[in-house]
Design a protein around this nucleic acid. Structure first.
Lengths: 190, 190
DNA sequence: CGCAACATTGAAGCAGATCAAGGCATGTGG
DNA sequence: CCACATGCCTTGATCTGCTTCAATGTTGCG
């Protein structure tokens, strides 16, 4: 799967996907990562577009715009579920705006690790290994950073014994301290 | 009006409001500006919080969580309207993520002017004056910049004859060129 | 007027970007 | 099995766009 998502509804049933937007000159912003149970292109809407593609292999179920409208008509209470999902997406998007606009690189990476762990916890919780199926470039484009800054920040966390970088992810040694960095309580002047 | 927005629904009927999130150390991210017809706290949801307050004077209509639930039950088709509004908000939020994460200061300010003009156009279109009822600090916190950068960028646009800074807003001399800067087509090395 | 809040402007500093090499796997074909 | 690509990832050096710091200007109002 790859390409534009609009005018129809997709539900992700397995795997991980990234959603992103591009600027004409190629700069990319990853809007979010989708996990099983998530919808892509939440509600059909014209002149609204982002792209999505798979990280590894995924499976999805697809509903055309018409089929979706029909489905809604038959089960109006399902709209409430969709609505709750949209509200959660909006909440996540607003948190992400705060992250992109006002957090430092360290806080961004730490917040990402905490947030990703929380999302995976709902699915299934490995021992202390946090799987990161997306590339460093994906993480950078999600956090509004460069790949080098993400890499450097992770190695700094490793040197500080907060985690160990392993193939395909990260082993969290001190989740509490990662969360503390994400929370950003240290006072900044002014 | 000021303070947390959660567990109930507000509809703005007049004036302008800003919605924002704060970090514990005081850094602020303005999430959006609300105009008449917009909802604040779109869908009631727990552990979801941002703040909002008025820019100038506003009037709103307020619905408690219970009243809202009851209202929805009586008119299910109204949920579709709410849903469309949520989808538009989500679209705007994703555009804003792209802006915050990947655009330069110049592109951010130009995009803001274009976007704000579009939103006001729906309401009513003044001659060529674009009213900016919010402060420079609000604009900076919306764009993930500092007040100084916003000010300098506007002055640069003024020197380039794209606009004139007037009290309470800006007079657009060359909207097309502002839009061109916002679109960011110039090729960046790589 | 005189103060208070907001805005502009300039100079200096720095966090993160850019540029530039290497690692380190996995693959592949000789 | 080894030479040698190829695609990430890491690491270091340098650069720069935006922030920070510090005045100064402007506006509105009691």
């Amino acid at each position: 799967m790859a390409g534009q998502v609009a005018g129809s509804v997709h539900g992700l049933t397995a795997g991980v996907a990234r959603m992103y937007k591009l600027l004409p000159d190629g700069r990319r912003q990853v809007i979010g990562f989708a996990l099983p149970g998530d919808f892509l292109g939440t509600v059909p809407s014209d002149r609204y577009s982002f792209s999505a593609d798979a990280i590894g292999s995924v499976s999805l179920c697809h509903l055309s715009r018409e089929a979706f409208a029909q489905f809604i008509e038959q089960r109006p209470q399902f709209l409430i579920r969709i609505n709750e999902f949209a509200a959660r997406e909006l909440m996540l998007a607003q948190e992400q705006m705060l992250l992109l606009g006002r957090r430092t690189a360290e806080e961004k990476v730490a917040s990402f690790l905490v947030g990703w762990r929380q999302r995976l916890a709902h699915i299934r919780n490995g021992p202390q290994i946090l799987a990161l199926p997306m590339s460093r470039q994906d993480i950078a484009d999600y956090l509004g950073l460069t790949i080098e800054t993400v890499s450097r920040t992770l190695t700094r966390f490793e040197r500080q014994k907060m985690l160990i970088i392993v193939s395909g992810g990260v082993r969290l040694l001190d989740p509490a301290r990662v969360a503390a960095v994400a929370a950003a309580r240290k006072i900044r002047r002014k």
